[in-house]
Nucleic acid binder design. Structure first.
Length: 1066
RNA sequence: GGGGCACUAGCUCAGGUGGUUAGAGCGCACCCCUGAUAAGGGUGAGGUCGCUAGUUCGAGUCUAGCGUGCCCCA
């Protein structure tokens, strides 16, 4: 016996049961223990930062990870799933600053770096419970107990090791990086923060004369909106392809882009010569200010650049590499010098005598006045644009500012990174050459350092006298240099035991670590910076084990990963850092590494395509949604609606649809099966007729099942979960809407026939395999089915569906011919129903015959095998076939383009025309007779064979017929009296059934019916009384006064009918 | 400003390698069905495949340009 199943099901309640069961029975742990000797399938979890609430986007990547991992687990792999937490970085600091109500370096230092770091630790785990609960609730099995944490000492030491290796190879160097800088706060801002602080403001827009060296009375006219950067001018940029004109105006010559002459200089000027931008390159000019000489290269020359626009300005742009990212890049490429006349606090240094101590933006007006007085100012305007301010202090403008920074020389190894990228299987494929490929093409050295507090400290110590630098890869290496290096930390810990061991490798403690070297003056002190947290997470393949200081075996066994998946925003984040670090660290490793397959998900948006945001509240909390519809529905909606690389519009309706479209369909079949299996006391140990002795219907279902198993495996092997979903949906549709619907009567049969046993066996086997096949997608509902269908009656079965094996292809079930036949049969039924609809012939009205046009005896026999089904579905007394289709059908011959295209080439349209204009039926007859036809084309006659044409049938209009998918069905629409009376009888049955339903009778309840009618209706009732009584379970059915518990006044084809219905005594 | 992706039915989306009647689900209309019934099922109407050129015998599919939206970077 099976546990009785209610058709009403609460999926959220089932979820709770299974979550408890999995935990109590340690099912997840058992998948790991059981599989430990199996071939591993390695997965890396991209570590989230738990300082924000998880939202539907996180749910999506989690379920995507889970489906492939469950699939591999059931497929016989050992699939460890270790959680990880990303704990460093600017966003963490920003959150803590917000919480503490402080901001900026000075404020943090005043608050205390140690206390601040502790706050950061608390902050990164603020929502860890919510994250774990969401993960648990959605059914993503992940080993949180073994989670790696990026701030832990062993992790940091691994990162240090990687950095020290790079340092030794000369891959770490110091240079400048232009960042958005908040002068008043003394700190850089992240892109995200910059984006939050834009305001529309008016800035001066000035055109300045830059006198050309060697050409009298001639100046370049260049443009800038930041006059305060002019003292640090190093070059002028032109576009090499643009034509520049030298224009004589009022006794001087000015050089501007030819296209802008009139706009800038008016109509008075005379063009005296023209030069392309490329010809100007290398020309020298007098800078407007000369407080200091640029260092490291030449200065005050014209260079070519790719960003010069003619939309505004003069076509020449002033470049100050210290204060603009583009400026810096171009000047660096051209080997120009560098000059930075501005203090980090935004004031001019003493060197800039005229403006010393003035704040940059405030000095603009004085600088313009100065230029005007020296005759260098050509024009001053106001320029309205969006400019970023500090989002925490909206009156403080940000400036682009070059800071000393540490870089990884990724450009040196970029070819190897690209080779690695090419070897990776990206899903979708276009990431490889598109987003990632293009990113790698434009690769610049990785700006690694951050002037912040909470991050992995950069492990470089510099001698404060000699400037010699050393990098270390572990605490042990430090202790070799100075056994007392961590004394400060030890003392602090002695005082405060709550101080975590991990913090010894963090600021402020690590900054106390120093050493001296014998025979060298000076003390080695750590550089102040911490590093980009993307470097942390990119080290996880080895740092999660503390490699190489420990965990060597674990690392070897789990490197590289078979599979990772995250959202597309990780292309330049985690995917890049993983790939780059691995390429630099493990040059001997065969590509690809550290991951072989990467599924890149799009982002989740709301119904209207808008980004999800907490502020707009445009999504339902995932936990709330799961409590409403269940975790499986949310999962299925995501699998069904999400294509890698594409954005997904996700909204609650998608989850409710999933319940109806998929989960409930399976549930209904399951509930149907259990109901009748229990009535019949059928159990899985009952006789199972061999496949060969089962009906076509059974073998068809199993053939479809097998095809689905193959398809789902193929798609999942290919990381195309959305395609696997389609196969499952279409199978479940066939199961529910064809197999079960057509087979119901077989399950009601009262006596124990071989056919009934075959039906039970088939449906049971199908449900069990379908359960396993679907388990990776919807792990909750499938557990219910598995427990009841399999485990309940077989204690030797796996304890959980997730410990079972994924279904294998089964050669014995393959029957493509049968699948094709049923497809045709279902099409015949559809066509017949169309004919009925079009001719307003209700299915209740029986018809004499349906005629199917068939091509040959084989097709006829195949379809005839399903004659019963077709006759019932179409309510016709007989099913006929015709091989004289020309009576009902018109033929049209078309070229088989795929075959004839290459053969005929340009003659194809002529051939199509000739065929269309001929008598199709005659051509068809000719083809039947000769296996070939002759067609006259303008270029001469050609012969066409059967495979070179496509025969298209269409129903002749004078028949009730429909054609489609290469088939034609004709209905005999003549209704004689006999048929009419049978139709009437069916009407009566229908009326009584409707009354039964209105009376709310259980389906097995018996009734007594008294009826009253005249004429043809009465005759029809009398004629079919037995059948009417039988179908309506009437123990008494007779003409009379039509009185009873319920009296039904109705009419059939205009004849009144009165029915009296009473529940029969039991 | 650069790169990437998308644009197919009212809505949400599928549509290897080019082949002539472009599919599904939802919604809508009409209809069927007591034995899965507070369920289930059928049929139908809806599309110049964003626009414009081009390549080709043939383009939703390939190429170029344009438009709109989104993402990443600047």
């Amino acid at each position: 016996m099976f546990e009785p199943v209610s058709p009403q099901v609460s999926f959220p309640e089932l979820d709770a049961t299974h979550l408890a069961f999995w935990e109590d029975a340690r099912i997840f742990e058992k998948t790991l223990e059981r599989e430990a000797d199996k071939p591993p399938f390695i997965f890396y979890e991209g570590p989230p930062t738990a300082n924000g609430m998880p939202h539907p986007g996180h749910v999506m990547t989690r379920v995507m990870k889970d489906v492939f991992l469950r699939y591999r687990t059931m497929g016989g792999h050992y699939v460890p799933r270790r959680a990880g937490w990303d704990t460093h970085g600017l966003p963490v600091e920003v959150e803590v600053e917000k919480a503490l109500g402080i901001s900026g370096r000075d404020a943090i230092q005043a608050y205390g770096v140690e206390a601040f770091s502790r706050q950061c630790i608390d902050s990164v785990f603020k929502y860890i419970d919510e994250w774990q609960e969401m993960t648990r609730r959605i059914g993503f099995w992940l080993d949180f107990d073994a989670a790696y944490v990026t701030f832990h000492k062993s992790y940091v030491e691994s990162v240090w090791w990687a950095l020290s290796e790079m340092f030794k190879k000369g891959l770490l160097y110091q240079g400048y990086k232009v960042i958005w800088w908040w002068p008043q706060g003394g700190t850089a801002l992240s892109a995200g923060e910059v984006g939050q602080g834009y305001k529309t403001i008016d800035d001066p827009s000035v055109m300045i004369r830059f006198p050309v060296v060697g050409e009298d009375e001639t100046s370049f006219l260049a443009w800038t909106t930041t006059p305060w950067t002019l003292p640090s001018n190093v070059a002028l940029a032109v576009d090499p392809g643009t034509v520049y004109a030298t224009v004589e105006v009022e006794g001087e010559r000015l050089i501007v882009a030819e296209a802008l002459v009139e706009k800038v200089l008016g109509e008075d000027g005379t063009v005296v010569s023209r030069r392309k931008g490329s010809e100007l390159v290398g020309m020298r000019y007098e800078p407007p200010f000369r407080y200091a000489e640029p260092e490291g290269g030449p200065a005050w020359e014209v260079v070519d650049a790719d960003f010069v626009s003619l939309d505004s300005g003069t076509g020449l742009v002033h470049l100050a590499p210290a204060f603009g990212e583009d400026d810096f890049r171009v000047c660096k490429d051209k080997g120009m010098g560098f000059l930075q006349l501005m203090n980090p606090d935004g004031t001019f240094p003493a060197t800039v005598t005229d403006f010393a101590g003035r704040f940059c933006k405030d000095a603009d007006r004085d600088i313009i006045r100065n230029l005007r007085s020296r005759g260098l100012l050509f024009k001053e305007e106001v320029y309205r644009h969006d400019y970023p301010f500090c989002w925490r202090a909206m009156d403080d403008p940000l400036i682009q500012y070059a800071r000393r920074s540490w870089f990884i020389r990724t450009t040196q190894e970029i070819e190897r990174v690209k080779e690695n990228n090419r070897a990776i299987h990206w899903e979708p494929e276009h990431i490889k050459t598109g987003r990632m490929g293009q990113f790698l093409e434009g690769n610049v050295d990785w700006a690694l350092s951050r002037e912040r507090f909470w991050g992995t400290p950069l492990p470089i110590w510099v001698n404060d006298e000699t400037g010699a630098a050393e990098s270390v890869g572990s605490v042990a290496e430090i202790l070799e240099r100075n056994p007392k290096a961590f004394e400060h930390f030890e003392n602090a810990k002695a005082k405060d035991p709550s101080l975590q061991e991990h913090l010894m490798v963090h600021k402020p403690w690590v900054d106390e670590v120093t050493w001296v070297k014998r025979g060298e003056p000076g003390v080695y002190r750590r550089v102040p910076e911490v590093i980009d947290c993307w470097f942390d997470s990119g080290c996880m393949p080895f740092a999660q084990w503390g490699y190489p200081h420990q965990g060597q075996d674990e690392f070897q066994r789990s490197f590289p990963a078979d599979f990772i998946t995250e959202a597309v925003d990780q292309t330049r984040g985690w995917f890049y850092s993983l790939m780059t670090i691995s390429t630099l660290m493990f040059p001997a490793q065969e590509v690809p590494h550290p991951f072989k397959n990467c599924v890149v998900m799009g982002i989740i948006t709301d119904e209207k395509g808008k980004k999800l945001s907490k502020r707009d509240k445009n999504y339902t909390d995932p936990l709330v949604l799961m409590d409403r519809v269940g975790a499986d529905a949310v999962r299925w909606a995501l699998y069904a609606g999400t294509v890698p690389g594409q954005n997904t519009r996700f909204f609650d309706a998608a989850a409710t649809d999933a319940v109806r479209e998929f989960l409930l369909k399976i549930w209904n079949v399951y509930s149907f099966f259990v109901t009748y299996a229990n009535i019949d006391a059928w159990t899985p140990t009952a006789d199972r007729p061999p496949l060969s002795e089962r009906s076509d219907m059974d073998r068809w279902l199993l053939a479809e099942l097998d095809a689905t198993v193959r398809a789902v495996r193929r798609e999942l092997d290919d990381y195309k979960s959305h395609m696997a979903v389609r196969h499952l949906l279409s199978f479940v549709d066939g199961l529910s809407n064809w197999y079960v619907r057509r087979s119901r009567a077989r399950f009601w049969a009262t006596d124990d026939t071989a056919d009934k046993r075959a039906a039970f066996s088939t449906l049971y086997e199908t449900l069990v395999d379908l359960t396993k096949l679907t388990a990776p997608f919807t792990p909750f509902m499938t557990e219910t089915l598995f427990q009841n269908l399999v485990r309940k009656n077989d204690p030797s079965a796996p304890e959980s569906v997730h410990l079972a094996s994924f279904p294998e292809p089964d050669e014995a079930r393959v029957d493509d011919a049968l699948r094709r036949t049923v497809e045709q049969v279902r099409n015949v039924v559809n066509l017949g129903q169309r004919v009925r609809n079009e001719n307003k012939l209700k299915v209740r009205q029986p018809l004499a015959e349906a005629i199917v046009v068939v091509a040959d005896d084989g097709e006829r026999a195949a379809i005839d095998g399903f004659s019963d089904a077709i006759r019932e579905e179409l309510n016709v007394r007989s099913l006929g076939f015709t091989q004289e289709p020309e009576i009902y059908v018109e033929f049209e011959l078309l070229p088989n383009f795929r075959v004839l295209g290459p053969k005929l080439g340009k003659q194809v349209p002529a051939c199509k025309k000739a065929l269309a204009e001929s008598d199709g039926s005659a051509l068809y007859a000719e083809m039947e007779a000769n296996q070939k036809i002759r067609v006259e084309l303008p270029d001469g006659p050609i012969e066409l064979t059967l495979d070179e044409v496509e025969v298209r049938l269409s129903a002749r209009e004078d028949f009730a017929a429909a054609s489609g998918a290469g088939q034609v069905v004709v209905l005999d629409t003549r209704i004689d009296d006999d048929l009419r009376r049978e139709g009437m009888a069916r009407e009566v049955i229908n009326r009584i059934q409707r009354a039964r339903k209105a009376m709310d009778l259980p389906y097995e309840a018996r009734i007594e019916v008294s009826w009253n009618a005249d004429g043809e209706v009465a005759k029809a009732i009398e004629e079919h009384a037995e059948r009417i009584a039988g179908e309506t379970l009437a123990t008494r059915f007779e003409a009379g006064d039509a009185e009873g518990a319920t009296v039904e006044e109705t009419e059939i084809e205009g004849t009144p009918l009165r029915l009296g219905i009473t529940k029969a005594p039991a």
